[in-house]
Write a protein that binds this DNA or RNA. Structure first.
Lengths: 202, 202
DNA sequence: GTCTATAGTGCGATAGAC
DNA sequence: GTCTATCGCACTATAGAC
């Protein structure tokens, strides 16, 4: 009841709140129905009741609208690294970050992630943006490891390996057949990485 | 002498040969002097004595002109994997590919690589393209590992790790102070990777 | 080789919030 | 008054269609 009154009051102001969220939702829908290339910025803006110019004030480009959630995930990873026990090794620090990030991918989110990934898989420009975000993540993780006393080049190698584990995990998690939790898959994947490097070539 | 005659004859044909090479050289120069964003496709074409339309017939987009050498490097990596001895482990297959790729980076090439990397480092769009090329490389390497009997997800983890080692090596190799050969750095980096994962978290 | 859609930018004006 | 979100319009360059 009170909510309805508030809604009516809100409608009287010059613009509806939550422009970013509306643009994001509209973009997802249109990218699914018409494809990324078949959707113009004007289409998205119109679907959200805004103008093209406003779209570009919220998002630097047409791709970014699919990726602005990444920052939260990155922060979780970094917090996870920071939360690791003293004297943890580089790989243990990374493992701690990975556990933290797994909380961002509960089972309920799997369908959404699948839809989003389908859009990205169909367009090289979107793949490029995703890779850039992962590279930024790896760089940030490497910095966090250095802050915990891990020297280069170990910090960068460990950070990149962590992002690799995350990426492979994500791929398995959204695979059609998969039913296991993100965290379960990720733990196994980290074990696989360790096992893979155990066969030492000198 | 003969060369001069040939040059004169060549000038009589409808177009100079080596259009791609001229466009590539012109693009490098202009990207350095005016920056990537400050250079238009028309600028590059004009500097190479060609039209904008011709530029886009040779390169899919303005970025690609800096990246079309990658295919040769990728093939070298794959050949290196294929050349590894029977019964090689995943990491040994990758190490074999890495050795092969190191031949693409003799000391004489360091200055060129530095200039090119400076351009890329200044522009996110170029970083995206570079990351895509590396991702394509990793995918191809993973396929080569599977062809040698390495199962998933080990193949992908090993391939990604290999590309990581390559990337970190490249960064050290072009660093101002570095004087060591690409191959030397890369061997150490692979050892570091193995050492880093040896501290096993269960 | 020409034509065109559209991504993305720059700038000024407007409408409200504070 | 300042600050922020929006619109509207003109503009360039990319990239693809014809």
């Amino acid at each position: 009841m009170a909510a309805a009154v508030i809604t009516r009051l809100v409608r009287m102001v010059r613009w509806e709140p939550g422009a970013s969220a509306r643009l994001r939702a509209a973009a997802m829908d249109l990218y699914v129905s018409r494809g990324f290339d078949g959707t113009t910025a004007a289409d998205i803006a119109q679907a959200a009741g805004l103008t093209e110019r406003t779209f570009f004030r919220h998002f630097a480009d047409k791709r970014e609208v699919l990726f602005d959630g990444q920052n939260l995930m990155q922060q979780a990873f970094l917090d996870g690294v920071a939360a690791a026990p003293r004297e943890a090794s580089a790989l243990e620090l990374v493992a701690s970050g990975l556990s933290a990030v797994a909380t961002f991918f509960p089972d309920e989110r799997r369908d959404y992630s699948r839809r989003r990934q389908t859009i990205i898989a169909e367009n090289p420009a979107l793949q490029e943006r995703e890779l850039l975000k992962l590279a930024v993540l790896a760089t940030a993780v490497a910095a966090a490891l250095r802050a915990r006393g891990i020297p280069e080049p170990t910090a960068t190698l460990a950070a990149q390996s962590g992002v690799t584990v995350f990426g492979v995990t994500f791929g398995v998690w959204i695979a059609e057949s998969s039913e296991r939790s993100f965290d379960d898959i990720q733990r196994d994947m980290l074990q696989e990485l360790v096992a893979m490097t155990a066969g030492v070539p000198s």
